[in-house]
Design a protein around this nucleic acid. Structure first.
Lengths: 230, 230
DNA sequence: CCAAAAGTGTTTAAATTACACCCATGG
DNA sequence: CCATGGGTGTAATTTAAACACTTTTGG
């Protein structure tokens, strides 16, 4: 380790959160409208520099809550981006985080220097500052990988959901169509979803059964590294 | 973004490299003996603070080369570790990197402030400073995941190898025994290894055929996200 | 009775698993 | 001729893939 140790302690670290949500119209990502420099008045990922007396993982939640009001969201690290020129104010490394939430379950409200917070369909993300477009691409790929290994889909749906909703979710993430019968067969053969006895109502077609997930079985499979290939 | 922006630019970032190698006696990790504070005279991962005018990925290679002489090694990022108290000199985030090399193909030589560089069997890693034991555990899990998705095993073997050597490699990474016939059937059915026509010599038993890998097919599979489950 | 989405089984093909004996070489 | 690891095939089971019609509701 060199003598001029001070010269190494001049970096900043930020967190950028890719929060995925899902509703009728498909898979979405949460962006904020920046009310602070740099890149004021641009849409961007909800991210910020982190305070140096807070653990990294804790910071990810703190930043997200500060900008969007979302709290107690399970977040997982994706990757760190560290090109020299990625931030105009100096050397800033950013650690990208990943989260899945049920859109209608949380109130998203722009806070602190975020002037707005909106859901953008994953295929209609505008040009973003920094390397945020690259981060989102990376997160999408990560989501695709992950959904094959863990039954994480439920984190994006309401508590009660139909099998068709679940299938549409898988289809948007995997970006291909799945066979109805094979999908239902496979999903039901794993025991982590159960009928609630309820049905949709006020729909103009045959009402679908509502299911919920069985959290015990869900966590058992999640921890056993279950292979959820569809 | 806050006013006292200077207070955020006081972090350092380091890179820690988990370099896996493989030989007759199994899977190994490269460690260095530290000749510099902090934790002078301890074994640790080859890692160092990074210079703030160098890209992150470039730094990973630079650090490894500086300490061990290894160059042009393909490295991939694993994860960033950022607990507040993980470094005694201040707030240091470390980005862990991952590499696979053929032990006998490279000369490893301790350089700069590294006093020694040695291969340690993965199951005999001593207590290491910082969070390096945690990083290695994380890297081992990462290696297990990765070997199911990509035929990366060859990066650890010599240019010419026997099927038994390849099987032993898989067994040490996956930490379970594999059936000889099924393993050979599956490996040979993918076209990325080919016979060389050569055999082992000077062995006291039936000499094994030597294979090498077919790089075209190898890259094709690697890019198609081939599922190499055994 | 029409529109719209829900729901349901079977057949075929492919992949995975389990399993035991003979072969080639050096000493 | 013995010890050592190299090398080979088949049958049974499991899993994945392809595919079309009937049901229930609201309007």
């Amino acid at each position: 380790m060199p003598n001029n140790i001070e010269s190494y302690f001049k970096a900043a670290v930020s967190v950028d959160n890719v929060v995925f949500g899902f509703d009728q119209s498909g898979l979405k990502v949460l962006l904020i409208y920046r009310g602070a420099e740099p890149y004021r008045n641009c849409w961007a990922l909800p991210g910020d520099l982190i305070q140096l007396d807070v653990d990294l993982n804790t910071s990810a939640n703190a930043v997200l809550q500060n900008l969007t009001g979302l709290q107690e969201i399970f977040m997982d690290q994706i990757r760190t981006f560290g090109r020299v020129d990625r931030h105009p104010y100096g050397r800033v490394f950013t650690v990208a985080y990943f989260a899945l939430i049920r859109i209608e379950r949380y109130m998203v409200s722009a806070q602190a220097w975020a002037e707005q917070a909106e859901w953008f369909p994953v295929n209609e993300i505008p040009d973003l500052p920094f390397d945020h477009n690259e981060i989102i691409e990376y997160a999408k790929e990560n989501l695709r990988q992950r959904i094959r290994k863990q039954p994480i889909g439920f984190e994006l749906l309401s508590e009660y959901f139909t099998l068709t909703e679940l299938q549409r979710l898988y289809e948007s993430i995997l970006d291909r169509e799945l066979d109805v019968r094979n999908f239902r067969k496979k999903i039901l053969s794993m025991d982590f979803i159960v009928e609630t006895g309820m049905k949709q109502n006020a729909v103009t077609h045959r009402p679908a059964k509502l299911y919920k997930y069985n959290s015990e079985q869900y966590y058992k499979l999640q921890n056993s590294g279950y292979d959820f290939d569809l």
